[in-house]
């Protein structure tokens, strides 16, 4: 990497690291630049996609079937209705497009969650290690079963009102929920640790680039 190409990332990295002393204009410059560039790139990408992959392929594809061209008008109209939500007086007209988006999005998401995550995970959690599996497999299956059951029971908020007026959960449920809470803590801790390691990896990569830039600059 030549110094001319490495200079902008190096300078921007320093600007971002200036946040160590607090919020300052240098840090804001880097952040604004990043957000602005990303937003501009997204807008350009979407606009390019809309023209290249939608209008040219459907509405303006004179060689395509007429039905496809007619149907391509429907999402176009819905998109125009969404634009009407800019004005409060015409915002209600955009509700039709919003209803379509929310309805379809919810249906797709629910279908994916049930078929793609919930059922497979339940099936995996319920699979008992076979007789031929080793002790580790049995322990792993046992831990998975206990963790799944106790974690689910932790979110079962069934309680009764004590004579003192307090709402307390039954003792067995409290014990199981405490185990589930422990599993939740371990899970969140692992996620947090993974985020830290990811940040460290990013920083190490940036620092490696910085060292390489400086070394190359000095060598020259």
């Amino acid at each position: 990497m030549t110094p001319s190409r490495a200079s902008p990332p190096f300078i921007l990295t320093l600007l971002v690291l200036s946040y160590l002393i607090g919020d300052n204009p240098l840090y804001r410059i880097a952040v604004y630049l990043f957000i602005g560039a990303a937003a501009g790139f997204v807008a350009l990408t979407v606009a390019e996609w809309l023209w290249n992959f939608w209008l040219r392929a459907t509405a303006f594809n004179l060689e395509g079937p007429p039905a496809q061209r007619i149907l391509s008008v429907v999402p176009l109209v819905l998109g125009l209705l969404l634009l009407l939500k800019f004005s409060p007086s015409t915002a209600r007209l955009g509700n039709l497009a919003m209803a379509y988006l929310i309805g379809v999005g919810t249906a797709v998401a629910l279908n994916g969650i049930i078929l793609g995550t919930l059922l497979p995970q339940v099936r995996a959690a319920g699979s008992v290690p076979g007789i031929g599996s080793d002790v580790g497999g049995w322990v792993n299956g046992l831990v998975m079963a206990i963790g799944a059951i106790s974690t689910l029971l932790y979110f079962m908020f069934v309680a009764r009102r004590a004579p003192s007026g307090q709402i307390v959960r039954p003792l067995p449920l409290r014990l199981v929920a405490a185990v589930g809470q422990g599993f939740i803590v371990v899970t969140l801790a692992s996620l947090y640790a993974g985020a830290i390691v990811a940040s460290l990896s990013i920083f190490a990569g940036r620092f490696a680039t910085f060292v390489a830039f400086v070394t190359d600059l000095v060598a020259r």
């Binding site: 793609g116 497979p120 995970q121 099936r123 995996a124 899970t187 692992s190 996620l191 640790a193 993974g194 985020a195 830290i196 390691v197 990811a198 990896s201």
Partner: peptide, 23 residues
């Protein structure tokens, strides 16, 4: 990445992912 590894591990254990590489 390292932050997504626990979720990838769950999908790997269930057989939905054939494998994954972490960071």
């Amino acid at each position: 990445g390292a932050g997504s590894e626990p979720v990838a591990a769950a999908y790997y254990e269930s057989g939905q992912l054939e494998g994954y590489v972490t960071g």
